[in-house]
Design a protein around this nucleic acid. Structure first.
Lengths: 186, 186
DNA sequence: TCACCATTCGACTGATTAGTCAATCATTTT
DNA sequence: AAAATGATTGACTAATCAGTCGAATGGTGA
């Protein structure tokens, strides 16, 4: 693992457990096994570090959600796969999941970064609009419904992290929650 | 307004906009119009200040959610009223709403305070147990429903704060989200 | 061999911060 | 009116932190 990645990993862990301003750069460097000078060689400020970390998380999010999704598939199949991937991402990368939950609306992330982050996950939102057009979910109040769908996913992930079921039962729960989602939002 | 309340008010604003560790006590005192010594006369440490602030927020939360809820009403009526009150609380007191969202899981709040905060909102959680007893939801879904309700409330409040609709449309949106929520669990 | 540059190091600095303290000021009690 | 209690002040200090800098290292190509 490169020094840069070691710094990312260390910062991710420390920022989520101690918060941004209560995590000294010296501690990030120490946990990463590098000198502070090295940290500032890769990231000119602590702010830049957290902003890049934020984008890195958003990128792996969209990668995982889109993984194995064939554009040729019909809409319901793609939606189901993406929903499944979303929840699995939250469970498998729950350190990144936590980080995004904590810092998505934090003042440490610049407006520019937030905008760039929004661009990176745009492709996920497209399918939502497609589903509305196709009449799979109700048409009114687009933005609020989207928020509610995300809220739904977040609570499923939180629940799975707390109960830690076996893979088989876990997958069944995700499928169950998906059918509930589709029923509730149609 | 007492000096203590002025300090509370100033700290609430600064903690939510700048974060705990990026808010100097000197700045809290300045915005409150008092000397730093006065702040430390009322709160022996900065930690104590945020912990007391946390409990204060929890208390006004439970007051608002339970406002006008008659124990004589049947369960669905009470649940609907409480859901409505929760969202309205988030909109009306959105500084406190933001604060709790940011600091509910922050390491700055001590375990003792969190426990005390949990005690204060206990009466809200009872209604979930009641719903389970009454067979309104499946027994193993209690925690899941709770997570989902909280996640829903957060996204509805966030949405309402962003779009600032008229009271009539606002109430419609709250009811829409509530009906989706209920559909998910029926 | 040597020049070059990216990488790495960690001691160091200037700035900032939480909390102290000794001194007033205000109010109530005796 | 004297004494006591509590509220308020802000200059001060010891500690901490983000970011700097000059030196050391090692790889690459001429």
């Amino acid at each position: 693992m490169s020094k840069k990645d070691l710094i990312f990993k260390s910062a991710l862990m420390l920022f989520t457990t101690r918060g941004f301003h209560d995590t000294p750069t010296s501690e990030i460097a120490k946990q990463a096994g590098v000198a502070t000078g090295t940290l500032f060689h890769y990231f000119s400020t602590k702010e830049e570090l957290i902003n890049e970390l934020y984008l890195e998380c958003k990128s792996t999010l969209v990668d995982k959600v889109m993984e194995g999704v064939d554009p040729q598939w019909d809409l319901p199949t793609r939606m189901h796969k993406m929903y499944f991937n979303s929840v699995l991402w939250g469970v498998e990368y729950h350190d990144k999941f936590n980080f995004l939950q904590q810092f998505d609306n934090s003042p440490n992330i610049s407006d520019l970064t937030r905008e760039e982050g929004y661009n990176r996950i745009k492709s996920i939102n497209w399918v939502f609009d497609e589903a509305r057009e196709a009449g799979l979910i109700r048409k009114d109040h687009r933005d609020m419904l989207m928020e509610l769908v995300y809220a739904f996913i977040i609570s499923v992930v939180t629940q799975l992290i707390q109960t830690k079921p076996e893979p088989k039962e876990r997958d069944e729960l995700i499928d169950l929650s998906y059918s509930i989602l589709m029923k509730a939002f149609s």
